[in-house]
Simulated assay, not measured.
Amino acid sequence: MTTPQLTDWPHLYREGDSGRPLLLMLHGTGSHEEDIAALAAQLDPAAAVLAPRGRVQENGMLRWFARRAEGVFDVDDVILRAGELAGFIAEAREHYDVGNREIIAVGFSNGANIALATAMLHPEALNRVVAFSGMYPFGERSTEVSLSGSRFIVLNGRSDPMAPLSSVTTLMSELERQGADVEQVLREGGHGIDRADLEAAVDWLGRR
């Protein structure tokens, strides 16, 4: 499969204030780039925003990678799409003259999963992640890339049927094993982003 060029990949870009990070906003299944971009203003209204569109479709819904069933990912496709996203980030950094500005991925659900996969496989492209309602993206596989210098915040509901706590526990273990600086926020409830999640993410971003 040929890696798509930036001009062929639907996305939006908004310039932020000088010195502020760039938030890479990654939508969940069935959503799109405009929806998730609106979340950026609640996290850092002065940040630049880059929001690409998931390139996989499932029953007409946009996604970032294929899955075999609910919660069962096509891991080969996860790896492929993570590589594509890493290439997109590198091309966007040059195209939009981002320079050395810090890029922080903010993903929800399927968007969190592709952010995690990309950062765990390609830390040279992405090493800061805010993962809302994400889970471990590699099934039974492990990765061996050093994540020393990478930072993650993982925010989940304890009773989320779409991102089971067992998979979140695996995610935390793997991130720590690979040397990442990782913070976990667990709340009562299920899939979604609530006010406590947002407050924790804003606090984490302020300490970046």
Rank of each mutant, 00 (worst) to 15 (best):
E124K: 09
G107E: 04
F88D: 02
Q57F: 11
A41K: 09
L62W: 09
L80M: 11
M135A: 12
I103T: 13
V56G: 05
E84Q: 15
D44T: 00
A86E: 04
F65W: 09
A66E: 13
G71T: 07
R128W: 06
R101N: 00
A115W: 06
I114Y: 01
V98F: 13
V145S: 03
V72F: 01
T118P: 07
G139L: 07
V56S: 10
L80Q: 15
I103C: 12
L80A: 14
L116W: 03
T143L: 11
V106R: 08
R101Y: 07
L50I: 11
I79Y: 00
V130F: 02
S142R: 13
E91L: 03
V145F: 01
S142P: 00
N113L: 07
E70G: 00
N100G: 12
W64T: 00
A125S: 15
L62M: 06
D74N: 12
E102S: 15
A131Y: 10
Q42L: 14
E124C: 01
D44L: 03
G87S: 13
S142E: 14
V130L: 12
D44Y: 01
E94G: 00
F108D: 08
E84C: 07
E84N: 07
W64S: 01
Y96R: 04
N113T: 01
P45D: 13
A47D: 12
V56I: 15
A46Q: 14
V56A: 09
A69V: 04
V72E: 13
I104T: 15
I114A: 07
A112W: 10
M61C: 02
A48L: 08
R93F: 04
L126D: 03
A41S: 14
R55C: 05
E70V: 14
V49T: 11
I114Q: 03
G111E: 01
A47S: 15
F73I: 06
D74A: 12
V78M: 08
R81E: 15
A86S: 12
A125E: 10
S142Y: 05
Y96M: 08
V56M: 02
F132E: 07
L116P: 04
A69S: 15
Y136L: 02
L116R: 01
R68H: 13
A105E: 06
R128K: 14
E140Q: 08
V49C: 02
A119W: 03
P45T: 12
R101F: 06
F138S: 03
T143A: 13
V72H: 07
V130D: 01
V98Q: 03
G83F: 08
D74Y: 08
A51Q: 11
A119Y: 06
F132M: 06
V129G: 10
A125K: 06
